[in-house]
């Protein structure tokens, strides 16, 4: 296989990426490649750089060294490339971040109308389609503050899907939720994985990792310590740090 074939197969590619906040190095020499349709789960202790890494992928944070290529666009300060990448990469946040002044359906319609320039009617059709996919079409005309956390997070997923993204990034999508709402969100994510969406998911839901992930990435202190298929990762962790982390998280 030639070099360019490898690149085209990898929808996301991080090479030797460093990220600093002032003097503090949040990412140290990160290398990660994600193929089309691959599902990656990222875990690791608090402050290990998980959020920073996935936020670099759609340039909510700017990396300081190394190279990030997303769907053929290298991330530089070129604004056009960034907007192109962002509209192809969906992101779901821990705190939902729904626009509080817009109704649910308007939350979903905003970006397609502004970025994709689709008509209002079409945007509404697409929005309703995805609201049905996440099983809450009846909430369309309510406002975010009137929905439960689990419902809000499903709306956030639907909102990202309306842009028809090639990749979905999830940053701890269930950790702000009450326990009884976690599964409704994970179910939606599992469905998405089954349909072949490329996903990078930061989560500590190890059950989800086992059943859905192609690989599990363990990060600590800004580094990728270990990356393996879930079977291998859970049964046969290589590094001491991974073992310690797993022993802490699996006893919960």
């Amino acid at each position: 296989m030639s070099d360019s074939d490898v690149m085209s197969e990898n929808i996301i590619q991080l090479e030797n990426v460093d990220k600093f906040f002032g003097d503090f190095q949040a990412l140290k020499n990160i290398n990660l490649s994600v193929k089309k349709g691959e599902r990656i789960v990222v875990c690791g202790p608090s402050g290990s750089g998980k959020s920073t890494m996935i936020r670099c992928i759609n340039r909510l944070e700017e990396h300081n060294a190394g190279k990030i290529v997303v769907n053929g666009h290298e991330l530089t300060s070129d604004v056009k490339d960034i907007d192109a990448v962002r509209s192809e990469v969906g992101m779901v946040f821990q705190s939902f971040n729904l626009f509080p002044h817009l109704s649910i359906v308007k939350n979903l319609m905003l970006a397609p109308q502004l970025v994709r320039k689709v008509s209002k009617a079409e945007a509404r059709d697409v929005a309703m389609k995805y609201l049905e996919r996440v099983k809450i079409p009846e909430q369309a005309d309510k406002y975010p503050s009137q929905l439960s956390g689990g419902q809000q997070q499903r709306v956030a997923i639907a909102r990202a899907l309306c842009m028809n993204p090639k990749v979905m990034l999830f940053d701890e999508p269930t950790s702000a939720l009450d326990p009884e709402m976690i599964s409704e969100v994970l179910d939606v994510m599992t469905d998405l994985a089954k349909e072949g969406m490329t996903m990078i998911v930061v989560t500590h839901e190890m059950g989800f990792a086992r059943s859905v992930a192609d690989s599990v990435v363990f990060m600590d202190e800004g580094e990728i310590v270990e990356m393996n298929p879930p079977q291998e990762f859970f049964e046969n962790p290589k590094s001491e740090r991974t073992k310690l982390f797993l022993s802490q998280i699996l006893t919960h």
Binding site: N58, L60, D83, A84, R86, S87, E88, V89, G90, M91, F93, S95, N97, L98, F99, P100, L110, A111, L114, V115, A156, R159, A160, M163
Partner: peptide, 15 residues
């Protein structure tokens, strides 16, 4: 977070 959500959806600075 709301501005970031907007960025993540590909909205321009002005939008």
């Amino acid at each position: 977070g709301l501005k970031e959500a907007g960025s993540a959806l590909g909205l321009s600075v002005t939008d």
